[in-house]
């Protein structure tokens, strides 16, 4: 496809090249332990988190510095979300949820740096996160509630005839949860980055043909606008992933509606 585009107008479309995974050192094939760009950008996310939450809060000051107040704000934000959505019993699982939130948030934001790599745009990463949440929540539900957990699928207030049908639908929707949970995150991030790349491919049009006088400024403006949208999406997707985790956790803690 790239070759076709090149032969037509000289434009090069590689919207998905930015998601490529390559070994950092040398050309050797990627084993499970190979340090790749995934490793690099995840490590950068960890460094940013450590910088914010360890070095930023080093002062332990009662009157917080700017960085410390950001850390406290993030902590309070997620803590309140867990408390509001999952209830008081959910607070026990706050560190896990906060870990997932921070990882997604920092991966998303670091991925917005031009030329960077976004771990959360990969199905493999988000699927592990999503299925991890799904499995943990399901196991937790059975451990805490035993067979009562199945009450989640058996609507007591529905007419008796409809109950099996509703149970089947609920069961399907329950098992679709991790899929939509993970694909939502990866798809959103991938879509935004790919769209930016597509507009970026239109940007050098001015070097190729006369219509570029119109196309190039429009595409640069579009990149700017979509970049702003992507900053929003980066935060909202982390927020949505976290709040859905809390909702699923609530279902496990209180299966009766």
């Amino acid at each position: 496809m790239a070759a076709e585009a090149q032969s037509e107008g000289g434009l090069v479309f590689h919207p998905l090249d930015q998601f490529k995974i390559y070994s950092l050192f040398g050309e050797n094939p990627i084993q499970w332990y190979t340090p790749t760009n995934v490793t690099l950008w995840m490590a950068l996310a960890v460094f940013c988190i450590v910088g914010l939450f360890v070095f930023g809060t080093r002062g332990r000051s009662v009157i917080p510095t700017r960085v410390q107040s950001v850390a406290e704000l993030a902590d309070g934000f997620i803590y309140k979300m867990v408390e509001d959505v999952a209830g008081c019993e959910g607070v026990k699982y706050f560190p896990y949820i906060f870990t997932v939130f921070l990882f997604i948030l920092f991966s998303n934001f670091l991925g917005l740096i031009p030329g960077s790599f976004t771990p959360t745009s990969h199905i493999a990463v988000t699927a592990i996160l999503g299925f991890g949440v799904f499995i943990c929540v399901t196991v937790l539900g059975f451990v805490l509630n035993g067979a009562h957990f199945l009450g989640l699928f058996w609507m007591k207030d529905a007419p008796l005839v409809l109950r099996p049908i509703i149970a089947v639908i609920e069961l399907i929707s329950y098992f679709v949860r991790p899929v939509s949970h993970s694909i939502r995150l990866a798809g959103n991030i991938m879509a935004g980055h790919a769209v930016i790349k597509v507009f970026a491919a239109f940007a050098p049009m001015i070097l190729i043909s006369g219509i570029g006088i119109v196309v190039t400024p429009v595409s640069v403006l579009a990149i700017t606008a979509i970049y702003g949208l992507e900053v929003l999406v980066a935060f909202i997707q982390a927020y949505v992933f976290t709040i859905l985790t809390c909702v699923y956790l609530k279902d496990a803690l209180h299966p009766a509606h």
Partner: peptide, 15 residues
Amino acid sequence: PQLDFSTFPNQIFWL
């Protein structure tokens, strides 16, 4: 690249 299964173990490990 998202569907290149050869990189999955790597990503999962580092994740």
